[in-house]
């Protein structure tokens, strides 16, 4: 049993820490003389948020099978990426673009948790909550694919902004420094290349396990199934366009962003394995 004060860690604790870290990252850019102070402050709040986030996950151990759990776990992995990026000098832009995604996921998780029937958590089949190996593997694969999709989204967003600046020939010295088009394209390509097989394997595993679970509602037209299927299709198209044709990277970036939107829908939708889960 965790100490009672740890039970008091809420969404607000780490959500606000991430928000302060983001504001301080902006402060470092807008206020050059306080650059160092702001960046250290941002890292401090970012780490504090990550610690609170970790404590929350340990104490409440939300399952990835319910929407808020999936969103929180994804936000947590992305927060690790954020800290890694800052410590490895990936540049200010990385933090400025990734933190809003993390904050957004935490906010969504909070909203979904309020709307979600409390009973749902208790009725999720044991195998999917990680108590059995294959269920845990299914969840892990989908989670890692989600991380890849999120990274691809952030890289795409930065790519589109950088391409817009170049199209308008805006002086790079006067605007927020971003990674080069080449690096962003590479980041996007790698994220897609990693996420697609993980997503495919995770979904296949789910498809195999689902019919075998007698307690599940086999609702093939649930929002979760449809959005996940659409996500997989978009990713398939992305992989084909990236490697099979020479579609301009800008269009690939837009598709990556669409994939992220589908991911959010899929994560927010209740799991069809869960009794009482969503039906269209």
């Amino acid at each position: 049993m965790a100490p009672s004060w740890l039970q008091n860690v809420t969404y607000a604790c780490f959500g606000l820490s991430y928000l302060l870290a983001w504001l301080l990252e902006w402060g470092a850019w807008l206020w050059p003389s306080g650059d160092r102070l702001c960046r250290w402050g941002a890292l401090g709040f970012g780490l504090a948020g990550l610690v609170a986030h970790t404590v929350f996950l340990i104490v409440r151990h939300p399952t990835p099978a319910v929407p808020d759990g999936a969103l929180l776990l994804l936000a947590w992995v992305l927060a690790l990426f954020y800290v890694y990026g800052v410590l490895h000098q990936a540049g200010r832009a990385w933090a400025l673009f990734l933190l809003p995604v993390i904050i957004g996921l935490v906010v969504l998780a909070g909203l979904v948790a309020r709307l979600e029937p409390a009973a749902l958590r208790d009725t999720v089949p044991a195998w999917i909550t990680g108590q059995r190996f294959w269920g845990a593997l299914h969840g892990t694969l989908i989670l890692l694919a989600s991380v890849g999709i999120s990274v691809s989204f952030v890289a795409s967003l930065m790519y589109l902004l950088q391409a817009r600046r170049l199209r308008k020939k805006i002086d790079p010295g006067r605007v927020l420094p971003l990674l080069s088009l080449e690096r962003l394209e590479l980041l996007n390509r790698r994220a897609i290349a990693v996420a697609f097989p993980l997503l495919t394997a995770g979904l296949l595993l789910g498809l195999i396990l689902w019919p075998a679970d007698p307690g599940s509602q086999h609702e093939w037209l649930s929002v979760k199934v449809l959005s996940t299927g659409a996500l997989w299709l978009v990713f398939g198209v992305l992989v084909y366009l990236r490697y099979g044709t020479h579609l301009p990277p800008r269009r690939l970036a837009w598709l990556s962003m669409a994939a992220f939107a589908l991911l959010l829908v899929a994560l927010m939708a209740a799991h069809p394995f869960a009794p009482g889960g969503d039906t269209p």
Partner: peptide, 8 residues
């Protein structure tokens, strides 16, 4: 500087 925004 423009080159550095395109290539890594």
């Amino acid at each position: 500087d423009f080159l550095l925004t395109v290539f890594d």
